[in-house]
Design a protein around this nucleic acid. Structure first.
Lengths: 143, 143
DNA sequence: ATGAATCATTCGAGCTGTGAATGATATTTC
DNA sequence: GAAATATCATTCACAGCTCGAATGATTCAT
């Protein structure tokens, strides 16, 4: 009896999210390495696509990483032609990062990859369970 | 219109799980560091509690890490008195790892920590959404 | 105008985790 | 049964990721 609920650490959301997150990240990493990207690159590009003209410091805070890491990631994305650095005219200390056409294309391919992985990953869920999961994850990530 | 679905990389489960997993792991790590533990220690102890008498290689495969890492983790857990190494009688190459009373107590504290974090993390979900999430995550993690 | 704050960047260092060698024990093959 | 081969845990050196402190440039406050 009692395999249903409240059973040990593995039944907590924190543990399960940690586990699944590691799997998801690892698979995504392998899937996009052919594009010369790592997950954090996709994260940065996503942030750039979402809000325009943020300082790298704000981006770092949003991504939860050190500002110096944003520099490195931006360097690599710039080398791929995915991102462009421009000095902010109003504040010449700031660098404005903008997605290029190449960047947008790369991001689109990342999305395609992610959707394909979703199919694999969520294969055992019923459509109803899938929708419920999407709803909950949407709330947790703040949409 | 259209903030509902199919909208960019951030709307994929892979991306959201990766993000939330990182948050969950990071918070859990901070919460248990006072116990002298890291998330992987909890992962190993959980595996030990689940199935008895597995070789370290099998444990490594189950956890998705290199066998040499299991050695390191076991060393540290042994130093905490949480785990005991015994030579397998039938195959003296193998070390049998068993949770001690201390280990079981530590694991229980980890679970308490995780449940507390769950409360924070899932605070914005309705009870119904919570149940649906638990169901989906349960399926995805294999129970 | 001068000093303090804020930006991006560089650099050095720490921590994790891996893979290749090692030695001990088991298993297979002849 | 003995020698060759395979498998286990362990050690060790190394690569990768990320951070924090130091640097230089620019802006803000006084």
């Amino acid at each position: 009896m009692s395999d249903v609920k409240g059973n040990g650490l593995p039944s907590t959301a924190v543990f399960q999210l940690g586990t699944l997150g590691a799997v998801a990240e690892s698979r995504f990493a392998r899937a996009v390495e052919g594009l010369g990207l790592k997950p954090k690159h996709a994260g940065l590009m996503t942030a750039l696509a979402a809000v325009a003209a943020e300082s790298q410091q704000e981006l770092a805070a949003r991504l939860g990483v050190a500002p110096s890491l944003v520099v490195t990631l931006a360097d690599q994305l710039e080398a791929l032609g995915a991102v462009q650095r421009t000095r902010d005219v109003n504040d010449r200390r700031r660098q404005v990062l903008t997605l290029t056409e190449v960047g947008r294309a790369l991001l689109a391919r990342c999305e395609a990859v992610a959707r394909a992985l979703d199919e694999e990953l969520l294969a055992d869920l019923t459509p109803r369970q899938r929708a419920a999961l999407a709803e909950a994850l949407g709330v947790l990530t703040g949409r």
